[in-house]
């Protein structure tokens, strides 16, 4: 058997798994935020697209409402949707990668555990 004891290897694998799971959670959360932002922007775009062309549109900048030409507002929102979509795609790939990593970790954990279980029972470790 390897120089490290099964306990140590199991511990190392567990640490790795925990790290991957943390990363995965972070990535999932930011993907959710992006998704929400994308949805909000889409709703805004929808709304801007159906209003009459002479409608006054204001943008909230800090505490002030600043009037903005409708065309410009439409362009801005479209651009933002593009940007967020790209970002979302990137995050989704990241999540997928991390999920794969997690699966790999869990698999090797399971293997180690089996090895561990098949070891002859040792005298209590904390003796």
């Amino acid at each position: 058997m390897a120089s490290k004891s099964p306990q140590e290897r199991l511990q190392a694998e567990l640490n790795e798994l925990k790290k991957v799971q943390r990363d995965l959670q972070n990535a999932t959360e930011s993907r959710q935020t992006l998704d929400a932002q994308l949805n909000e922007n889409k709703l805004v775009k929808e709304e801007l697209d159906i209003v009459k062309d002479n409608t006054k549109v204001y943008k909230l900048i800090g505490p002030a409402l600043v009037q903005q030409p409708l065309v410009e507002a439409r362009q801005n929102v479209s651009k933002r949707i593009e940007y967020i979509s790209a970002e979302l795609k990137r995050k989704e790939e990241q999540v997928k990668d991390l999920q794969k990593k997690q699966d790999g970790c869990q698999e090797s954990m399971a293997k180690l555990k089996q090895e561990f279980d098949q070891l002859p029972p040792q005298p209590a470790a904390n003796a």
Binding site: Q37, E40, N41, L43, V44, E47, L48, V51, T55, K56, V57, Y58, K59, L60, I61, L65, A73, V77, R80
Partner: peptide, 13 residues
């Protein structure tokens, strides 16, 4: 009236 349609945009209606 002005309506907040999201992401900081307000539309007069």
């Amino acid at each position: 009236v002005l309506i907040d349609i999201g992401t900081g945009y307000y539309v007069e209606k």
